[in-house]
């Protein structure tokens, strides 16, 4: 189903901008992810939640398809990805670029400085929270053996359910060792998360959203990750406590949850 799009998943957005602009948002847009209740690991869940929040913020309709092999179906090998007409787009940044090209833009009235600050905070989430989540999910002994590996391997029969999580763990370990996160202790990781939350909390202050009264991509990304950290129950969950220490961030998560998710359900 990937078709000819799979050949270069990252560079498509350049010409999508030209083709996509004229077309309206189709009816049957699909977002693919793994089974949320049994299978998905929480770093992946955070990514999926960010994308869903972003699409809701843009007021776009889509339905969620749950597939056990969503990771293999994705053009970049990562969840989530959306299927819009003839296009497959995966991960948050390309999806944002794609949606913007279709004429839905959350940040059209922002100044250049504000936009650059927004991208900077988004990079901070990627470089701190994403790595911290991967660290806790796959490198922490207790969490990986009790939660992550059984969940990741659950759809497969015996030898695979044992081998595939190990292979994934090896990949994550290689990735975290290449950027220096593997050698950190859990205390250092918690410290990183705390500084990150501190910065976000300072930036948010008492505003409803990070840049005033209207939601941006950053709000979607922050909500996806913080909400996941707050709500996932783990045998060792120091992150939830850290986020709880910043009342404005917790209130922010609750507000977005109510505004975009509770409404959708009704």
């Amino acid at each position: 189903m990937a078709g000819d799009m799979s050949s270069s998943p990252l560079v498509v957005d350049a010409f999508q901008a030209e083709i996509g602009a004229s077309e309206p948002w189709p009816v049957d847009v699909c977002l693919y992810q793994q089974y949320a209740a049994e299978q998905i690991t929480f770093p992946d869940y955070a990514h999926c939640l960010s994308v869903k929040t972003f699409l809701y913020m843009c007021g776009l309709d889509f339905r969620v398809e749950q597939k056990t092999n969503a990771e293999e179906m994705s053009p970049s090998g990562k969840v989530p990805f959306i299927h819009v007409g003839a296009f497959l787009v995966s991960e948050l940044d390309p999806i944002i670029a794609f949606v913007n090209a279709r004429g839905f833009n959350l940040v059209s009235d922002m100044s250049d400085t504000e936009r650059s600050e927004m991208r900077a905070y988004m990079s901070m989430i990627e470089s701190i929270l994403v790595n911290a989540e991967l660290y806790l999910a796959w490198l922490d002994e207790t969490v990986s053996t009790e939660i992550t590996k059984p969940r990741y391997g659950c759809p497969y029969p015996w030898p695979l359910s044992w081998m595939l999580p190990l292979r994934k763990q090896k990949d994550v370990r290689a990735r975290l060792s290449s950027n220096g996160w593997k050698d950190k202790t859990i205390e250092q990781v918690c410290e990183e998360v705390r500084t990150c939350c501190q910065a976000l909390s300072e930036r948010l202050d008492e505003q409803p959203y990070f840049f005033g009264d209207n939601p941006t991509e950053l709000d979607a990304l922050v909500f996806g990750h913080l909400y996941t950290l707050l709500t996932t129950s783990l045998p060792e969950g120091p992150f939830a406590e850290i986020v709880q220490k910043f009342p404005n961030l917790a209130a922010f998560c609750k507000r977005i949850d109510e505004k975009f998710f509770k409404q959708e359900e009704n």
């Binding site: 900077a120 990079s123 901070m124 990627e126 470089s127 910065a199 930036r203 202050d205």
Partner: peptide
């Protein structure tokens, strides 16, 4: 200010990431 310090952290993450 506290907000500017937060910006420092965010932009240094962007330098490292991008």
């Amino acid at each position: 200010s506290a907000k500017q310090s937060a910006d420092v952290l965010a932009f240094s993450a962007m330098l490292e990431e991008k």
